[in-house]
């Protein structure tokens, strides 16, 4: 039953225009941001800030920062977030939830199947995104900054690989969010609002309160910490080491998706 449910959930994702529509947007933004971000390479003074130090000359950490630029500015993750929200809330909005439950009357296999389908689409997103970011950033790096692409570096591949995790977790966050709010329009606005504007807002509030320990818990900061290990390893930046950032972010995704699934477990399908 669970295998059938997984197959159905994957088919569901790839039989509407949503997945490629959002993917095109994400890839364009990601590619352009990496392309633009790479122009900073060698233009910064290493004594200005930790970020400036990383970008002061071509090196592995700079390549990691360039390829994950879309996440550093909290834009790339909004697309998988919206994907997760829309995928689940579409079931309520268009009442396909009824046939989903009719096919799989026990609810937990539905949640598991949806989570696995999200891993599949998250992987597809990440692969296309990686290609776009490397191409976008790489053009600037090689044409205008005479830098290598550092594609032989295991650390760069670690970042490109963790982008897969980032996509999966942000889609899961959207999925959990959508399950909790159910209303598509509300969930999209609140979800995007919290992730983007909320991230800025909380950063300001935390800095006013001098809560240096707090910003590192924000999901967007966890994502950039995970993708930029050199930056994250500097204690002055008050961030989690990349591994812990990955763990905490994964916990967020699982907790939110799990909470949504549990609350939906016995809810009547009207």
């Amino acid at each position: 039953m669970i295998a059938s449910a997984i197959k159905a959930e994957i088919l569901k994702i790839f039989t509407t225009r949503l997945w490629w529509g959002l993917l095109i947007g994400d890839v364009l933004i990601g590619g352009l941001l990496s392309f633009a971000f790479a122009f900073q390479l060698g233009q910064t003074d290493s004594s200005d800030s930790p970020t400036a130090a990383i970008m002061s000359h071509p090196n592995v950490a700079a390549a990691q920062a360039i390829y994950s630029a879309g996440f550093t500015v909290t834009l790339a993750e909004l697309f998988p977030l919206a994907l997760g929200v829309i995928l689940i809330t579409a079931e309520f909005r268009h009442k396909t939830w009824t046939s989903t439950v009719l096919s799989t009357p026990l609810r937990w296999p539905i949640s598991v199947a949806k989570a696995i389908a999200i891993c599949v689409v998250g992987f597809v997103y990440a692969v296309v995104y990686d290609v776009a970011a490397v191409v976008g950033g790489g053009i600037t790096m090689s044409v205008w900054r005479h830098s290598g692409l550092y594609l032989g570096s295991a650390e760069v591949w670690q970042t490109l690989g963790l982008i897969v995790l980032a996509f999966i977790i942000w889609t899961l966050l959207g999925f959990g969010f959508g399950l909790l709010l159910r209303n598509q329009i509300v969930a999209v606005f609140v979800g995007i609002g919290l992730a983007f504007i909320g991230n800025i807002l909380f950063s300001i509030i935390f800095s006013l309160l001098h809560w240096d320990w707090a910003p590192k818990f924000l999901p967007s900061n966890l994502t950039s910490s995970m993708l930029n290990p050199t930056f994250a390893s500097d204690p002055a930046n008050h961030t989690f080491a990349w591994g812990w950032a990955a763990v905490v972010l994964t916990i967020y995704g699982l907790v939110l998706a799990g909470a949504g699934a549990v609350l939906n477990q016995r809810k009547d399908v009207l």
Binding site: L11, K12, T15, T16, L18, A90, H94, T98, S99, S103
Partner: peptide, 15 residues
């Protein structure tokens, strides 16, 4: 009970 953006055939394929 259909997703308006999914074709009738795909709807049945999912089911």
């Amino acid at each position: 009970n259909f997703h308006p953006g999914r074709s009738g055939r795909d709807h049945l394929r999912v089911l």
